Amino acid sequence: MVGNLAVGGTGKSPLTEYLIRLLKKDTRIATLSRGYGRTTKGFRRVDTSSSAREVGDEPLQFKRKFPDIQVYVCENRCYGIEQIKASCDVILLDDAFQHRKLKPGFSVLLFDFQSLMNPILMLPTGNFRDELSSAKRADCIVITKCPTEISDFQRQQIERKLRKYSNAPLFYSTIAYDMAQDLTGHESQLNLNGTDVLLLSGIANPKPLSDYLTAQGCRIELLSFPDHHQYEEKDYKQILSRFEQMKGKDKIILTTEKDIQRIDTTLFKEMPLFYIPIRIQFLDQKQEEFDLLIKNYISSRMR
């Protein structure tokens, strides 16, 4: 299970995709998510032809990137597991740490780096939906969205908070950005340096992507919507209007891979619309250690 204690934006989807890549060659994998933002209810299988409104953006992204795996949504994870457990070896549960009726075999708990630099405050004052003491239920902890250089003081600050409750293996990771892709899913050869970018975001925290693009030499104009936002006609009119008002000659619309699942791309066939996939990257040369931890657990359960 991949989960977190805070609300949104900790990088669960990139880690789930990492686990899919790690395990799909040797196991029959299924992912099971709530399908946040969907308009349907109950247990549902995700197909590549599904819509984000039907199944949610993240499950649809998993299925389109990895069409050979099984992808399902169900708000009742226990019921969902019963429906699919006979057809797979491994079930990856996306965002189920608060699903207390569920007893996963192995839990990977994520914390956004910046959230641990600040005081831990519960909703509605802060953004944590569970007490830090819940970390004791984790089999492994991954700190996500770290800067590539973490000071000893920052590490000590993080570990002082977490080691009160958990001695689980602890890993640090950062977000890596892949090449921008066009609407056909092919890598573009965009030179971002000097480009005017309308950054279209319907994710919890667009700042890391905005900072990355600025570092690449882009001039950013951010058009931000709520996390999992379902784009409507009025939104498309606003996007087009903002883009037309931009004065640069080399201008594009850029969005996230999660957003592209929710956007009606047929409206942008004549527009320079691109998206940037992201992936998780482990720091301190700990990728092999993390991989071995996961593989050893899977191996022990499949004997």
Score class of each variant (00 low, 15 high):
residue 62 F to R: 09
residue 193 N to S: 11
residue 258 K to N: 12
residue 34 R to K: 12
residue 23 L to R: 04
residue 157 Q to E: 05
residue 206 P to V: 11
residue 34 R to V: 01
residue 26 D to P: 08
residue 268 F to W: 11
residue 12 K to G: 07
residue 274 F to P: 14
residue 11 G to Q: 11
residue 64 R to W: 02
residue 270 E to S: 11
residue 264 D to L: 01
residue 157 Q to S: 03
residue 165 Y to A: 00
residue 268 F to P: 08
residue 104 P to M: 07
residue 27 T to L: 09
residue 293 L to N: 15
residue 284 D to K: 14
residue 190 L to W: 03
residue 82 E to Y: 00
residue 164 K to P: 01
residue 65 K to Q: 12
residue 28 R to M: 02
residue 172 Y to N: 07
residue 266 T to K: 14
residue 44 R to K: 15
residue 296 N to C: 05
residue 93 L to V: 09
residue 84 I to C: 03
residue 229 H to E: 05
residue 152 D to H: 04
residue 269 K to V: 07
residue 239 I to Y: 04
residue 202 G to L: 07
residue 133 S to W: 03
residue 70 Q to S: 10
residue 163 R to A: 12
residue 65 K to C: 06
residue 269 K to A: 08
residue 106 F to R: 12
residue 65 K to F: 04
residue 188 S to N: 07
residue 192 L to V: 02
residue 5 L to D: 03
residue 86 A to G: 00
residue 246 M to P: 13
residue 238 Q to S: 08
residue 278 I to Q: 13
residue 5 L to Q: 05
residue 125 T to M: 08
residue 50 S to G: 08
residue 112 D to W: 02
residue 297 Y to E: 12
residue 299 S to Y: 13
residue 200 L to W: 11
residue 76 N to P: 05
residue 126 G to I: 02
residue 92 L to T: 09
residue 128 F to Y: 15
